[in-house]
Write a protein that binds this DNA or RNA. Structure first.
Length: 400
RNA sequence: GCUGGAAUCGUGUAGUGGCAAUCACAUCAGACUGUAAAUCUGACGCCUUUCGGCUUCGCAGGUUCGAGUCCUGCUUCCAGCA
C-alpha cells in the first residue's frame, strides 16, 4: 500500500527516538504509542468486542497460525474477513506465526531476567512441535498432531485471507540460548530472505485481491541482544519497502531499551515500529522512549485470568487470603467497569469458585490498565511531561 | 440382639509386616511478556533456613528386630437378618 500518509509523527521526546503519532488504516486510525491487546483466535479470551472496546483498546492482534489451523483462513475469507467474522470494526493486526517457531519449537521464555539465577538450558517437558529449515517451518499441529509447512509465502497468503490491516513478515524468533553464529545464520539464511519473500508475496496478493482493503506489511527485526546483529537487521529491513517494522525476538530484560534504540537508529524514522510481545510497565517505558510506537502482548489477559491484577502500586494476586473480607473496590483509582462495580472480596470469590466471570472482570481491568498506561504516556509526551510522568509511575509501581 | 464390614492429613481415599505414609479435592503461596495457558510450580503432622529431629493411621493391650498393616478387648459407624 502507499505509505505516503500511512504514518505521521506528532511530538518527539527531545533527544530520543520516542514520539507520538498516528497510524492510518482502512479500519481507522491508531494514536501512538498504543497498546494492542491480543485476541489470538479472533477473540480476546473472555471479552466481547464491546467490552474490549470499552477498555480503550484501539486495535486487536490475531494469529495466523491459530486461525489457519482453526477455523482455516479460507473460511475467514469466505466470512468477509476477520473484522466482520469477529465483529471488530477497528484496526486489526495479524501475527505471522513466527512466534510459534519458538513457542512450539523450544518453549523458552521470550524475555529473560538475568538478574536471578542463570536461565535453565534444559528443554522443557513439552514435546517439540516445530522444525526449521531455510525453506520454512514445519509445525505439528497442537490440536491434532497433523503436520503443516509454513513458508513466508504461505504465511502471507493466510494473513491476506484473514484480512488484517497490518500483517507481519514470517520470521525466525531465536532464543537467547542460541549461539552468536546461529543468530547470524538465522538472519542471513532465514529471517532476512524470508522478509524479502514475504514482501514479494504480499505485494502480489495486495494487487490480486483488490476487492479487499489494502493491507500493510511490517518487516520483523531480529538479532537477539547483539548490537551488531540488531543494527544489521534493522538496516537491511529498513532498506526494503515495508510499511512499518516489528521489533521482535528474545530479549534480556535489562537491555530492552538499549536494543530498541539500536534498531530505531537504523530504521527509517517515518515508519511505525511495533514492539512484539511486550507489556510489563517498565519495559513499555523503556521501549517507547527509545522509539517503539505500538505494542501487543498476551500478558495482561493471561495473568489476569490467573488472578494477578495490575495496580499503580504493583501487581497483586487477588486470590490472596487478605482480600477475603475486603469489600472495597479493587482499585479506587481505576475507572474500569470491574473497579467501578465490584469489590476485592467478590473478585477473590469468583476466582476461588472458578466462575467464568472472574476471567472477564480481571481481563477488563488488566487490559484497561495497560491501555491507559500507554495512553497516559502518549499524553505526557505531547504535553512535554514524559520524564516526570515516568518517574512518578515507576516509583509508585515498583516501590511497594 | 445376631452376622458381616469399616475406622488413615480439612474432606474423600491408597496402603495387608520395613512409611511420615498414595492420590484427588480443598487450603496457602508464587510464576506467567508476537497464547499448546480458565495454565503451571511449590508448600500442606509438628519443630528446623538446610542437614535433621520428634510424634502419628479410632482407643487400650499383645505378637514381632520392626505394626497403618497380624492377634485380643473396647468404642463408634454402615449393611443384612431378627
Amino acid at each position: 500500500m502507499s505509505s505516503a500518509n500511512y504514518f505521521s509523527i506528532k511530538t518527539r521526546i527531545p533527544g530520543r527516538h520516542g514520539r507520538t503519532g498516528v497510524i492510518k488504516t482502512p479500519h481507522g486510525e491508531i494514536a501512538t504509542p498504543a497498546f494492542i491487546p491480543v485476541g489470538t483466535q479472533a477473540s480476546l479470551k473472555s471479552l466481547t468486542p464491546e467490552q474490549l472496546k470499552a477498555t480503550g483498546a484501539q486495535a486487536v492482534l490475531v494469529n495466523a497460525y491459530h486461525l489457519y489451523l482453526r477455523p482455516s483462513a479460507p473460511l475467514i475469507d469466505e466470512a468477509g474477513g476477520v473484522h466482520k467474522f469477529m465483529n471488530w470494526s477497528g484496526p486489526i493486526f495479524s501475527d505471522s506465526g513466527g512466534f510459534q517457531v519458538m513457542s512450539l519449537g523450544v518453549g523458552f521464555k521470550k524475555v529473560i531476567d538475568m538478574s536471578g539465577e542463570l536461565p535453565d538450558k534444559k528443554l522443557g517437558k513439552k514435546d517439540k512441535l516445530a522444525w526449521i529449515t531455510d525453506e520454512g517451518v514445519t509445525f505439528k499441529s497442537h490440536l491434532d498432531g497433523s503436520m503443516h509447512l509454513f513458508t513466508p509465502e504461505k504465511s502471507m497468503q493466510i494473513q491476506h485471507e484473514i484480512g488484517a490491516d497490518i500483517t507481519f513478515a514470517f520470521d525466525e524468533l531465536t532464543t537467547l540460548h542460541h549461539s552468536y553464529n546461529y543468530q547470524l545464520e538465522s538472519l542471513n539464511r532465514r529471517t532476512h530472505p524470508w522478509a524479502e519473500r514475504s514482501l514479494l508475496e504480499h505485494k502480489r496478493l495486495n494487487s490480486e485481491r483488490s476487492h479487499r482493503p489494502p493491507q500493510a506489511l511490517f518487516g520483523v527485526v531480529q538479532g537477539a541482544n547483539h548490537e551488531d546483529l540488531r543494527r544489521k537487521s534493522a538496516k537491511f529491513l529498513g532498506s526494503l519497502d515495508f510499511d512499518g517494522y516489528g521489533l521482535g525476538g528474545a530479549l534480556e530484560k535489562s537491555k530492552i531499551g538499549e536494543i530498541v534504540s539500536w534498531m530505531a537508529d537504523e530504521l527509517p524514522e517515518d515508519k511505525p515500529r511495533h514492539m512484539l510481545g511486550i507489556s510489563e510497565p517498565d519495559d513499555i517505558f523503556a521501549c517507547i522512549e527509545n522509539g517503539a510506537d505500538t505494542f501487543d502482548c498476551v500478558s495482561p489477559a493471561r495473568v489476569g485470568r490467573n488472578g494477578a491484577l495490575y495496580t499503580r502500586h504493583g501487581r497483586v494476586n487477588i486470590t490472596n487470603q487478605r482480600f477475603q473480607r475486603d469489600f472495597s473496590p479493587f482499585d479506587e483509582d481505576c475507572s474500569c467497569y470491574t473497579c467501578q462495580n465490584f469489590s476485592r472480596a467478590y473478585l477473590r470469590h469468583l476466582f476461588k469458585a472458578n466462575e467464568l466471570l472472574s476471567n472477564t472482570l480481571a481481563t477488563i481491568h488488566n487490559e484497561q490498565f495497560i491501555v491507559e498506561l500507554v495512553d497516559n504516556i502518549r499524553d505526557s509526551i505531547d504535553n512535554g511531561t514524559y520524564e516526570v510522568f515516568k518517574q512518578n509511575f515507576l516509583s509508585d509501581y515498583y516501590n511497594k
